[in-house]
């Protein structure tokens, strides 16, 4: 069924033109929501090691104690990625995580001291995370999201990033 049968092209173009300014008009957003969606995009542009059937859920672990961030991250579980549902939970050393969000140096040290460097996409929210073995360091500079990528750490975890993500990194350790 062709959409253009019901909506002439011009009307579709106008609808699109009307929608685009709306999308581009987002100038501000709350920090927890922006962190969660950036985290989701890191996952989107990462090729994770094949450690499960394609239909198996992706396990997202959040090592954070900020209630609003936890709530925002949990909302990601309603949005499958490449057909795989997301399961978001608080970090637990016993859990098998595909990606880990790490709030602080103390949490990262506890993770590394407990089970060694995890074989997962790690995203840290404190300055110096990539220098301490983390893969992506997410920070805010003058209110805008910025990220650094540690490629050797990613390779060690069996993760490959798309050039689209690498191109936007503020700092790329290679």
């Amino acid at each position: 069924m062709r959409l253009s049968r019901f909506f002439p092209r011009r009307i579709l173009a106008l609808l699109l033109a009307a929608w685009l300014p709306c999308a581009a008009a987002i100038e501000e957003a709350p920090e927890p929501a922006l962190r969660a969606v950036l985290f989701y995009n890191f996952l989107k542009f990462a090729e994770l090691p094949a450690n499960g059937a394609p239909e198996q859920p992706l396990s997202i672990c959040v090592a954070a104690r900020d209630p609003e961030l936890l709530a925002a991250m949990r909302r990601l579980s309603e949005r499958p990625l490449r057909g795989r549902p997301l399961v978001v939970r608080a970090y637990d050393a016993a859990a098998d995580c595909d990606a880990i969000y790490v709030e602080s140096r103390a949490r990262w040290q506890a993770i590394v001291n407990g089970a060694g460097a995890p074989r997962a996409l790690t995203v840290g929210a404190y300055a110096g995370f990539v220098d301490e073995g983390g893969i992506i360091e997410l920070s805010f500079d003058r209110g805008r999201g910025r990220f650094d990528i540690n490629q050797p750490a990613a390779r060690q975890a069996g993760i490959r990033f798309s050039p689209q993500l690498l191109r936007l990194a503020r700092r790329l350790i290679d």
Partner: peptide
């Protein structure tokens, strides 16, 4: 919160890094 995630999800990564953290929530955090 749901509405914020809904608003942000369609944005490209290039657009996301141009979004400002709203002062209110940043400071509240």
């Amino acid at each position: 919160g749901d509405a914020d995630i809904d608003r942000l999800m369609p944005l490209s990564l290039e657009q996301l890094v141009e979004v400002d953290v709203s002062i209110s929530t940043y400071s509240k955090q």
